[in-house]
Amino acid sequence: MAERKVCLSGSGLTKIYGFGRTRTVAVDHVDFNFYEGEVISIVGESGSGKTTLAKMLLGLTSTTEGEIYFQGQRRDISTQRKKLEYWKNIQAIFQDPFSSYNIFNKIDAVLLDCINMRGGHGFPRAKKVEMMTEACSFVNLKFEELTNKYPFELSGGQMQRLMIARIFLLMPKILIADEPTSMIDACSRATILDMLMGLRDEIGMTIIFITHDIGLAYYVSDSVYIMEKGKFVEYGTADEVILNPKEPYTKRLINDVPKIYEEWDLSTV
């Protein structure tokens, strides 16, 4: 195996919401090294702190304690300019496509923002349209049909594909996908996942894939981190963790995945 380069790491990363009786430790002193070009899954039940960790990694919420290192350097996002620079490298797809879009903006605006962010301000209109068309066709959407439409006129699956088109234009080094398929219909899920993986091959980015479905994690990832109540309780390669789980929590997560070839024991349901 070639030498693996760390692109994002954290030490003692902690997030505490509220104080007094409402104090919640959402993320509790986690340490990790995410390697370049890998798909890293973070698996945990809902409420285990996955989204909070993602927001901290994205710099969308402050950290209570701990440090984040980006490409070996301590991450510095103290000014708006530095944040912008950081966000050129790290992007996200959120869980709920229906709340991810500004309902007052048209689809063109969403994609144009991405082109502008990558320094395409001065491009002629035709070139921009060409780029948007390409991005849309990558996710099997027809730009001509979408222009002048609003995101909420699309289905959930289409909206999430548009999110991927966004990433296609932005070409970040790291993509954090926070349960990107959990809010959309089962038929669209496989398509979305295929497109994400296709995009990774296309631009060679690192994907941090957040899910509550350990089966899905096994299917897509190189490394797996298991998160329980804000802590990483187990991590390793997908094979290590899922074929050879050590923690009871991990075993429970694995057992929760329904297996088609097993007959359901209805008496325990």
């Binding site: 969308l60 996200a92 869980q95 879009y101 500004n102």
Partner: peptide
């Protein structure tokens, strides 16, 4: 909200976010 987060990630300034992602709502 996620749409505000997405707007931040798209490189918009505070003024732009207040005027475009908060005010219309």
């Amino acid at each position: 909200r996620d749409h505000v987060n997405l707007s931040k990630l798209s490189g918009h300034s505070i003024v732009h976010i207040i005027l475009n992602d908060i005010l219309p709502y």
